[in-house]
Design a protein around this nucleic acid. Sequence first.
DNA 1: TTAATTTTGATTGTTTATGATTGATTTTTG
DNA 2: CAAAAATCAATCATAAACAATCAAAATTAA
Lengths: 250, 250
Amino acid sequence: MLTTERHQTILNLLQDKQTITLQDIIDKTNASESTIRRDLSTLENNGELARIHGGATLTERKRKEYSITEKSAKNIQEKRAIAKHAASFVSDGDCIFLDAGTTTLQLIPFLKEKDVVVVTNGLTHLDALIENDIQTYLTGGLIKSKTSALIGPQAIQSLKNYRFDKCFLGVNGYHILYGYTTPDPDEAHVKYTASTMAKKSYVLADHAKYNQVSFAKIYDLSDAALITGNLQKNEIQHLAERTDVTEVST
Amino acid sequence: MLTTERHQTILNLLQDKQTITLQDIIDKTNASESTIRRDLSTLENNGELARIHGGATLTERKRKEYSITEKSAKNIQEKRAIAKHAASFVSDGDCIFLDAGTTTLQLIPFLKEKDVVVVTNGLTHLDALIENDIQTYLTGGLIKSKTSALIGPQAIQSLKNYRFDKCFLGVNGYHILYGYTTPDPDEAHVKYTASTMAKKSYVLADHAKYNQVSFAKIYDLSDAALITGNLQKNEIQHLAERTDVTEVST
DNA sequence: TTAATTTTGATTGTTTATGATTGATTTTTG
DNA sequence: CAAAAATCAATCATAAACAATCAAAATTAA
């Protein structure tokens, strides 16, 4: 394993877990204690992290950078990589719809430099959007308190007032036969409607959603481009037969 | 568990519960009594907390830092009294519009027992509404980041989908001649529209708004019932000639 | 290929963190 | 108010983490 790779691994671990123990890093990298100590020392000098007795922690500054996006979620690294790739499809001046959900949340920091206008139904996105100084419109609707998403006929209707260049959706499952699905029919309806108002739709989903099926169908695989991560070659091939799919590895 | 992690855990517990016992911390962290004592000692020296017999508590300074976010507004006592009185006009099962702003925010706790449906354009209200388990609809629209209010044509349009039993507005000034005013014409428009969709409108304004004039007029004094506080007799009389006014004293 | 340089992992003695124990202090209880 | 209980600070031995050093391995340059 290359030194820089190891450094990156350490930083990634930190972003996920806030603090890590030396032993953790040793296990993940299969490097010796001495090496990791040296790594930590180097990274500390570069201001990337702060060493503490027994391991390392994010510096105050770095912590703030990442606190924008929540870190409780699973597969956060993969989600961030997916989001980063999705962001590469966004052009300057685009009007985009950003669905509620943790994966789409990761997209926000990457939009900062793009001068976009965002419409969203995700209340949890607001802090990050405001913090990144992005012009934001909220759909109306009923607040579903469990997911902090706006749903219902009012959400649908207000969506119809917009036209999007791109639409980025999260889902709970994607399946070769059953398409994109999510547990709540109301949310599915919002996603579907947003898609119909967009020139191009992207679904962001980490590998845990592969061949998962949830209650409410949004639409077929082919109705949106899929951006996902860490799949096997044959899995990607199956998907590629059905839809436009991009896969990122972490 | 790393030392700094433990420290963070302790501080988090404190923020949640104000005071904690040593035993509590021991249970949460699986560290020994000695260790926790040392932790508390360290944190006390850093000014993060104050030790008390049997545990720890937030320092006066830190407590203020946290409560300041809620109570930073001026005339909070008066606003709460005004809000409480306004709540007495709310009936069980009412559908009400709650304008953005600090005064209307105070209304929320009093709505808990009333089984109401709330529509609001104030993003700062959401936490309180959800916490009080109130069914909430959000208008759509552009997020005005300074006040976290939803404004613009989309907000206006989504308001027109509702009919309210009552409508509670905040303003920046009320004046016998110039009526109710607020700095932002867009916000004024939202307030006005909400009013037109309501059977009855109330304006909530503390005494600092008396005879103040701001840029954008919402409507005349007589177009809404005024609930205010701590005015002088003759001031109330002048107002009473123009509109339905209630005054609460604190 | 060899020599120089860098990176690595093991070893050393040193420092720091931890948990158990003790007796002192404070709080509670009768 | 005094006895009992709980909490506390101080001490100590142990264990963990540490920086420093050095030789082996890997990489690069000549």
